[in-house]
Protein backbone atom coordinates (compact mmCIF):
# COMPACT_ATOMS: atom_id res chain seq x y z
CA UNK A 1 0.00 0.00 0.00
CA UNK A 2 2.76 2.45 0.86
CA UNK A 3 4.45 1.62 -2.46
CA UNK A 4 1.31 2.77 -4.19
CA UNK A 5 1.25 6.08 -2.34
CA UNK A 6 4.98 6.54 -2.86
CA UNK A 7 4.51 6.06 -6.60
CA UNK A 8 1.61 8.50 -6.54
CA UNK A 9 3.82 11.16 -4.96
CA UNK A 10 6.62 10.48 -7.46
CA UNK A 11 4.12 10.42 -10.31
CA UNK A 12 2.53 13.68 -9.29
CA UNK A 13 5.95 15.32 -9.24
CA UNK A 14 6.87 14.19 -12.73
CA UNK A 15 3.31 14.72 -13.92
CA UNK A 16 3.37 18.34 -12.76
CA UNK A 17 6.53 18.88 -14.80
CA UNK A 18 5.06 17.17 -17.88
CA UNK A 19 1.96 19.32 -17.54
CA UNK A 20 3.93 22.57 -17.39
CA UNK A 21 5.84 21.63 -20.54
CA UNK A 22 2.78 20.19 -22.30
CA UNK A 23 0.99 23.54 -21.92
CA UNK A 24 3.53 25.16 -24.23
CA UNK A 25 2.93 22.57 -26.96
CA UNK A 26 -0.81 22.78 -26.64
CA UNK A 27 -1.15 26.57 -26.59
CA UNK A 28 0.95 27.03 -29.72
CA UNK A 29 -0.90 24.21 -31.46
CA UNK A 30 -4.21 25.73 -30.40
CA UNK A 31 -3.54 28.94 -32.27
CA UNK A 32 -1.16 28.06 -35.09
CA UNK A 33 -2.02 24.36 -35.58
CA UNK A 34 1.73 23.93 -35.44
CA UNK A 35 3.73 21.52 -33.32
CA UNK A 36 6.56 23.57 -31.91
CA UNK A 37 9.20 20.85 -31.91
CA UNK A 38 11.69 23.30 -30.44
CA UNK A 39 9.65 23.69 -27.26
CA UNK A 40 11.27 20.78 -25.41
CA UNK A 41 14.71 22.20 -26.24
CA UNK A 42 13.69 25.63 -24.96
CA UNK A 43 12.78 23.98 -21.65
CA UNK A 44 16.18 22.27 -21.53
CA UNK A 45 17.85 25.59 -22.28
CA UNK A 46 16.00 26.92 -19.24
CA UNK A 47 17.50 24.15 -17.12
CA UNK A 48 21.02 24.99 -18.34
CA UNK A 49 20.63 28.70 -17.73
CA UNK A 50 19.30 27.97 -14.25
CA UNK A 51 22.19 25.61 -13.61
CA UNK A 52 24.69 28.28 -14.61
CA UNK A 53 23.13 30.79 -12.23
CA UNK A 54 23.15 28.24 -9.42
CA UNK A 55 26.74 27.13 -9.91
CA UNK A 56 28.12 30.63 -10.36
CA UNK A 57 26.30 32.23 -7.44
CA UNK A 58 26.15 29.38 -4.98
CA UNK A 59 26.19 25.66 -4.59
CA UNK A 60 29.69 25.56 -3.14
CA UNK A 61 28.72 25.88 0.51
CA UNK A 62 26.53 22.81 0.45
CA UNK A 63 23.92 24.61 2.52
CA UNK A 64 20.50 25.60 1.16
CA UNK A 65 20.48 28.83 -0.84
CA UNK A 66 16.87 29.39 -1.77
CA UNK A 67 17.49 32.90 -3.10
CA UNK A 68 20.01 31.56 -5.61
CA UNK A 69 17.46 29.05 -6.83
CA UNK A 70 14.85 31.81 -7.00
CA UNK A 71 17.22 33.89 -9.10
CA UNK A 72 17.92 30.88 -11.32
CA UNK A 73 14.20 30.60 -12.03
CA UNK A 74 13.90 34.32 -12.81
CA UNK A 75 16.89 34.20 -15.17
CA UNK A 76 15.66 31.04 -16.88
CA UNK A 77 12.14 32.40 -17.33
CA UNK A 78 13.29 35.73 -18.77
CA UNK A 79 15.82 34.13 -21.12
CA UNK A 80 13.41 31.46 -22.38
CA UNK A 81 10.57 33.94 -22.90
CA UNK A 82 12.90 36.02 -25.06
CA UNK A 83 14.00 32.88 -26.91
CA UNK A 84 10.35 31.96 -27.46
CA UNK A 85 9.56 35.34 -28.99
CA UNK A 86 12.67 35.20 -31.21
CA UNK A 87 11.68 31.68 -32.29
CA UNK A 88 8.20 32.82 -33.29
CA UNK A 89 9.54 35.82 -35.12
CA UNK A 90 12.40 34.12 -36.94
CA UNK A 91 11.23 30.54 -37.48
CA UNK A 92 7.44 30.61 -37.66
CA UNK A 93 6.09 34.05 -38.58
CA UNK A 94 7.70 34.17 -42.04
CA UNK A 95 6.07 30.81 -42.80
CA UNK A 96 2.61 31.71 -41.46
CA UNK A 97 1.04 31.41 -44.92
CA UNK A 98 3.36 28.79 -46.30
CA UNK A 99 2.74 25.08 -46.64
CA UNK A 100 2.25 23.28 -43.32
CA UNK A 101 5.31 21.11 -43.95
CA UNK A 102 7.62 24.14 -44.21
CA UNK A 103 6.77 25.13 -40.66
CA UNK A 104 7.40 21.59 -39.44
CA UNK A 105 10.83 21.59 -41.07
CA UNK A 106 11.52 25.01 -39.57
CA UNK A 107 10.49 23.71 -36.13
CA UNK A 108 12.79 20.71 -36.43
CA UNK A 109 15.62 22.99 -37.57
CA UNK A 110 15.10 25.31 -34.62
CA UNK A 111 15.09 22.29 -32.30
CA UNK A 112 18.42 21.10 -33.64
CA UNK A 113 19.91 24.58 -33.48
CA UNK A 114 18.99 25.00 -29.82
CA UNK A 115 20.20 21.52 -28.94
CA UNK A 116 23.53 22.00 -30.66
CA UNK A 117 23.81 25.49 -29.22
CA UNK A 118 23.46 24.06 -25.71
CA UNK A 119 26.05 21.40 -26.50
CA UNK A 120 28.52 24.00 -27.78
CA UNK A 121 28.00 26.53 -24.98
CA UNK A 122 27.86 24.08 -22.10
CA UNK A 123 28.95 20.55 -22.74
CA UNK A 124 28.16 17.37 -24.62
CA UNK A 125 28.40 15.62 -21.25
CA UNK A 126 25.79 15.31 -18.56
CA UNK A 127 26.11 18.20 -16.12
CA UNK A 128 25.30 17.73 -12.46
CA UNK A 129 23.29 20.09 -10.30
CA UNK A 130 25.09 20.76 -7.01
CA UNK A 131 23.66 18.98 -4.03
CA UNK A 132 22.07 20.93 -1.24
CA UNK A 133 20.99 24.11 -3.02
CA UNK A 134 17.50 23.19 -1.94
CA UNK A 135 16.78 22.19 1.66
CA UNK A 136 17.39 18.46 2.09
CA UNK A 137 14.26 18.03 4.15
CA UNK A 138 11.88 15.18 3.69
CA UNK A 139 8.69 14.19 5.40
CA UNK A 140 7.64 10.67 6.27
CA UNK A 141 3.93 10.15 6.24
CA UNK A 142 2.91 6.58 7.00
CA UNK A 143 5.78 4.98 5.14
CA UNK A 144 5.65 7.46 2.25
CA UNK A 145 8.58 9.81 1.79
CA UNK A 146 8.08 13.20 0.23
CA UNK A 147 11.08 15.45 -0.24
CA UNK A 148 11.18 19.24 -0.16
CA UNK A 149 11.97 19.27 -3.88
CA UNK A 150 8.96 17.09 -4.68
CA UNK A 151 6.63 19.18 -2.56
CA UNK A 152 7.96 22.37 -4.17
CA UNK A 153 7.45 20.97 -7.67
CA UNK A 154 3.95 19.67 -6.94
CA UNK A 155 2.74 22.82 -5.19
CA UNK A 156 4.22 25.29 -7.68
CA UNK A 157 3.01 23.29 -10.70
CA UNK A 158 -0.51 23.16 -9.34
CA UNK A 159 -0.51 26.87 -8.50
CA UNK A 160 0.79 27.76 -11.97
CA UNK A 161 -1.80 25.55 -13.65
CA UNK A 162 -4.63 27.02 -11.60
CA UNK A 163 -3.40 30.56 -12.37
CA UNK A 164 -3.15 29.88 -16.09
CA UNK A 165 -6.60 28.33 -16.07
CA UNK A 166 -8.10 31.36 -14.35
CA UNK A 167 -6.20 33.74 -16.62
CA UNK A 168 -7.32 32.06 -19.82
CA UNK A 169 -10.92 31.57 -18.74
CA UNK A 170 -11.66 34.66 -16.73
CA UNK A 171 -9.78 37.61 -18.21
CA UNK A 172 -10.44 39.52 -21.39
CA UNK A 173 -7.06 38.77 -22.90
CA UNK A 174 -7.42 35.13 -21.92
CA UNK A 175 -10.75 34.99 -23.75
CA UNK A 176 -9.05 36.63 -26.73
CA UNK A 177 -6.48 33.82 -26.70
CA UNK A 178 -9.26 31.21 -26.79
CA UNK A 179 -11.13 33.12 -29.50
CA UNK A 180 -8.02 33.40 -31.67
CA UNK A 181 -7.54 29.65 -31.36
CA UNK A 182 -11.08 29.08 -32.63
CA UNK A 183 -11.21 31.53 -35.54
CA UNK A 184 -8.48 34.06 -36.24
CA UNK A 185 -10.44 36.19 -38.69
CA UNK A 186 -13.47 36.36 -36.44
CA UNK A 187 -11.13 37.36 -33.61
CA UNK A 188 -9.73 40.17 -35.79
CA UNK A 189 -13.28 41.37 -36.37
CA UNK A 190 -13.55 41.80 -32.58
CA UNK A 191 -10.57 44.15 -32.71
CA UNK A 192 -8.15 41.55 -31.37
CA UNK A 193 -4.57 41.92 -32.57
CA UNK A 194 -4.01 38.24 -33.31
CA UNK A 195 -0.27 38.70 -33.81
CA UNK A 196 -0.04 39.99 -30.27
CA UNK A 197 -1.99 36.97 -29.04
CA UNK A 198 0.43 34.67 -30.85
CA UNK A 199 3.42 36.43 -29.30
CA UNK A 200 1.80 36.13 -25.88
CA UNK A 201 1.47 32.39 -26.36
CA UNK A 202 5.17 32.23 -27.23
CA UNK A 203 5.81 33.99 -23.91
CA UNK A 204 3.42 32.04 -21.66
CA UNK A 205 4.39 28.60 -22.97
CA UNK A 206 8.15 29.10 -22.72
CA UNK A 207 7.81 30.72 -19.27
CA UNK A 208 6.05 27.60 -17.97
CA UNK A 209 8.47 25.41 -19.94
CA UNK A 210 11.52 27.11 -18.41
CA UNK A 211 10.13 26.38 -14.97
CA UNK A 212 9.43 22.78 -15.99
CA UNK A 213 12.93 22.40 -17.43
CA UNK A 214 14.57 23.72 -14.30
CA UNK A 215 12.36 21.46 -12.19
CA UNK A 216 13.72 18.50 -14.15
CA UNK A 217 17.28 19.63 -13.44
CA UNK A 218 16.63 20.15 -9.74
CA UNK A 219 14.67 16.92 -9.35
CA UNK A 220 17.03 14.57 -11.17
CA UNK A 221 20.01 16.82 -10.32
CA UNK A 222 21.35 16.64 -13.83
CA UNK A 223 21.00 18.14 -17.27
CA UNK A 224 22.11 16.95 -20.68
CA UNK A 225 21.82 18.84 -23.94
CA UNK A 226 19.56 16.36 -25.71
CA UNK A 227 17.12 15.64 -22.90
CA UNK A 228 14.58 17.78 -24.76
CA UNK A 229 13.91 14.66 -26.79
CA UNK A 230 12.88 12.45 -23.90
CA UNK A 231 11.11 14.97 -21.69
CA UNK A 232 9.78 17.00 -24.60
CA UNK A 233 8.42 13.85 -26.21
CA UNK A 234 6.70 12.78 -23.00
CA UNK A 235 5.19 16.23 -22.51
CA UNK A 236 4.07 16.24 -26.13
CA UNK A 237 2.43 12.84 -25.63
CA UNK A 238 0.77 14.25 -22.51
CA UNK A 239 -0.64 17.10 -24.60
CA UNK A 240 -2.02 14.64 -27.14
CA UNK A 241 -3.50 12.41 -24.43
CA UNK A 242 -5.32 15.41 -22.96
CA UNK A 243 -6.40 16.64 -26.39
CA UNK A 244 -3.88 18.83 -28.21
CA UNK A 245 -4.96 22.46 -28.32
CA UNK A 246 -6.91 22.10 -25.10
CA UNK A 247 -5.36 23.82 -22.08
CA UNK A 248 -7.01 21.86 -19.24
CA UNK A 249 -6.33 18.79 -21.37
CA UNK A 250 -2.57 19.39 -21.25
CA UNK A 251 -2.74 19.72 -17.47
CA UNK A 252 -4.77 16.54 -17.12
CA UNK A 253 -2.65 14.67 -19.67
CA UNK A 254 0.58 15.66 -17.92
CA UNK A 255 -0.60 14.57 -14.50
CA UNK A 256 -2.06 11.34 -15.85
CA UNK A 257 1.06 10.44 -17.78
CA UNK A 258 3.28 11.18 -14.78
CA UNK A 259 1.17 9.02 -12.52
CA UNK A 260 0.90 6.26 -15.08
CA UNK A 261 4.65 6.28 -15.70
CA UNK A 262 5.41 6.09 -12.00
CA UNK A 263 2.96 3.27 -11.39
CA UNK A 264 4.19 1.36 -14.42
CA UNK A 265 7.79 1.94 -13.36
CA UNK A 266 7.04 0.87 -9.81
CA UNK A 267 4.96 -2.20 -10.56
CA UNK A 268 6.03 -3.40 -13.98
CA UNK A 269 9.47 -2.30 -15.08
CA UNK A 270 11.18 1.02 -15.58
CA UNK A 271 13.10 -0.20 -18.63
CA UNK A 272 9.81 -0.60 -20.46
CA UNK A 273 8.59 2.83 -19.42
CA UNK A 274 8.74 4.47 -22.84
CA UNK A 275 7.04 1.52 -24.50
CA UNK A 276 4.35 1.62 -21.82
CA UNK A 277 3.89 5.35 -22.42
CA UNK A 278 3.28 4.75 -26.10
CA UNK A 279 0.94 1.93 -25.18
CA UNK A 280 -1.11 4.34 -23.09
CA UNK A 281 -1.10 6.89 -25.90
CA UNK A 282 -2.33 4.36 -28.43
CA UNK A 283 -4.97 2.99 -26.05
CA UNK A 284 -6.36 6.47 -25.37
CA UNK A 285 -6.35 7.48 -29.03
CA UNK A 286 -8.21 4.29 -29.91
CA UNK A 287 -10.96 5.13 -27.45
CA UNK A 288 -10.93 8.90 -28.00
CA UNK A 289 -9.11 9.93 -31.20
CA UNK A 290 -9.15 13.60 -30.15
CA UNK A 291 -7.66 12.96 -26.71
CA UNK A 292 -9.50 13.08 -23.43
CA UNK A 293 -10.71 16.68 -23.54
CA UNK A 294 -10.17 17.36 -27.25
CA UNK A 295 -13.10 18.83 -29.08
CA UNK A 296 -14.59 17.23 -32.07
CA UNK A 297 -13.45 19.09 -35.15
CA UNK A 298 -17.03 19.38 -36.31
CA UNK A 299 -17.74 21.89 -33.57
CA UNK A 300 -15.47 24.35 -35.28
CA UNK A 301 -17.44 24.39 -38.53
Amino acid sequence: MSTLFQQLVNGLTVGGIYALIALGYTMVYGILKLINFAHGDLCVLGAFIGLTVITSLGGASGSPEIWVVGLAFVAAIIAICCAGVVLEFAAYRPLRNAHRLSAVVSALGASMMIENGIMLIWSPQTLVFPQGVLPQISWHVGGVVITFTQLMIIVISLILMASLYLYVNHTRFGTAIRASAIDQDAARLMGINVNRVIVSVFILGPALGAIGGLFIGLYYRQAVFDMGWTYGLNAFIAAIIGGIGNIPGAMLGGLLLGLFNALAGGYISSTWQQAITFGLLIAILLVRPTGILGERVAEKV
Partner: peptide, 17 residues
Protein backbone atom coordinates in the same frame (compact mmCIF):
# COMPACT_ATOMS: atom_id res chain seq x y z
CA UNK B 1 -18.48 32.62 -37.39
CA UNK B 2 -19.48 32.71 -33.71
CA UNK B 3 -16.93 31.26 -31.29
CA UNK B 4 -18.63 27.90 -30.86
CA UNK B 5 -16.84 26.72 -27.73
CA UNK B 6 -17.27 30.03 -25.91
CA UNK B 7 -20.49 30.97 -24.16
CA UNK B 8 -22.95 33.45 -25.63
CA UNK B 9 -21.90 36.00 -23.04
CA UNK B 10 -18.18 35.49 -23.74
CA UNK B 11 -18.89 35.98 -27.45
CA UNK B 12 -20.68 39.24 -26.76
CA UNK B 13 -18.06 40.51 -24.34
CA UNK B 14 -15.34 39.92 -26.95
CA UNK B 15 -17.21 42.38 -29.13
CA UNK B 16 -16.37 45.02 -26.52
CA UNK B 17 -12.68 44.03 -26.60
Amino acid sequence: RVFGTLTVEENLDLGAY
